[in-house]
Amino acid sequence: MADPMKIRATVQGDVADVRVLMAHPMETGQRKQGGKPVPLHFIQTITAQLNGKTVFSADISQAISRNPVFAFKVKGAKAGDKITVTWKDNKGESRTDETTIRGGS
């Protein structure tokens, strides 16, 4: 089972700033260990939802680094709203985590 993400979401006005840290090896398939190539293993899709409604989705490739960071802004959010992020990788593994948007300073 994949390790949890860390999601930080703070709102300023009606725009939420969301930062997501994902724990994933993101193997490119190019790396070798003990002479043998390490098989391709990378996140293919990322979806973010605000209160259950998809606001962001992306298809990404093995060009993204290990333990990637994603940051995005969502309009029309307020403190207390829920942000849900899901990733799915090429081995069919996936992970979903949720956080509550906090009021900004």
Partner: peptide
Amino acid sequence: EEANPAELFEAK
């Protein structure tokens, strides 16, 4: 530093 993957290891 604003989004340091070290936090993933802290959680772990």
